[in-house]
């Protein structure tokens, strides 16, 4: 297998950042990664380890502060706040993850296709992307809610579509550079299939950029998804979700009980800060690796 001989050599030249994991992101980078890992674990196991039923309404406890057994107290309808926060992580974090992965998938595919075929394919795909660029994510999600009814799925799909052109545009340049590498030409001459070349060699060689962009996007997706749920067009009440909790807590907040809104705000702010910090660090690192 000549290819096996060729690739490692070019890999050394083109991707010095490959398989570096979290190295070089600094102390705050590690803390951020820890926060993200904690949020992900909570999103998966939260609904199983919550202390109380998050939807159990008890109006006599409405807006009651922390008491024994309920460390965060109750929301405006007397539901246990801690349980709702733990369950709410699911839609917020996993939803954003889904959006980020989907738009990375679409964006990377488009970038590789345009880089590989160039010419008319490139022009026509770029033209379509220009039209998608005209729709801000939030606007597309609102239109999607009007068409398909408000739900997390329609909001998530709309955001993923709205984000993909950004990914495609960032990755297109890197993919074109990689396409021009000698090893790709060498393997093409040897008759390796396009699919295998792209999936096994081209994409892995721009993976550090993909991961960095995906992380940044994950943060944007969390903010936008929470915003859409806040507007009432995403996750639907009574499902516990951080965005929904901020909007439902507004009634209590205006009467002087800010705990429900504020606790959800704090959760979002902490996770989003961690994600955006790590994303920036990773993208700095991938830029350094490429220059």
């Amino acid at each position: 297998m000549t290819a096996e001989v060729l690739t490692p050599v070019t890999d050394l030249v083109t991707t010095p950042t490959r398989r570096r994991g979290l190295r070089g992101v600094g102390v705050i980078g590690y803390i951020s990664a820890g926060v993200i890992a904690f949020a992900l674990v909570l999103a998966i196991v939260g609904p199983f380890i919550r202390p109380y039923d998050p939807n159990l309404i008890n109006f006599s406890y409405a807006n009651v502060g922390p008491i024994a057994g309920h460390p965060l107290g109750f929301d405006g309808q007397g539901r246990d706040l801690l349980s709702r926060l733990m369950v709410g992580a699911r839609t917020c974090v996993l939803g954003a993850m889904f959006v980020a992965l989907l738009s990375i998938f679409i964006g990377t595919s488009l970038a590789v296709i345009t880089a590989w075929f160039g010419g008319k394919t490139d022009t026509s795909i770029s033209g379509v992307l220009d039209v998608v660029f005209a729709f801000p994510g939030i606007l597309l999600a609102i239109v999607a809610a009007a068409v398909f009814g408000p739900s997390l799925l329609s909001a998530g799909l709309a955001l993923a579509i709205a984000y993909s052109p950004y990914i495609a545009r960032v990755l297109r340049g890197a993919a074109i550079k990689e396409r021009a590498q000698a090893y790709i030409a060498a393997m093409e001459v040897q008759g390796f299939g396009v699919w295998r070349l792209c999936a096994r060699h081209l994409v892995p060689n721009i993976s550090s950029l993909i991961v960095a962009q995906g992380t940044i996007l994950f943060g944007y997706a969390m903010v936008d998804l929470a915003a859409i749920s806040f507007l009432g067009l995403g996750v639907q009440s009574p499902t516990a979700d951080w965005g929904v909790m901020i909007s439902e807590g507004k009634i209590g907040l205006l009467q002087g009980y800010p705990l429900e809104s504020f606790s959800a705000v704090l959760c979002i702010v902490i996770v989003v800060s961690a994600v955006s910090f790590l994303g920036e660090r990773l993208s700095e690192r991938s830029k350094q690796g490429r220059s």
């Binding site: 901020i246 507004k250 907040l253 800010p258 705000v265 979002i268 702010v269 989003v272």
Partner: peptide
């Protein structure tokens, strides 16, 4: 302020 999305800033300011 970068970490505070507009809807979060809205509820904090309102309170």
């Amino acid at each position: 302020s970068a970490a505070l999305p507009s809807f979060a800033a809205a509820v904090v300011l309102q309170f």
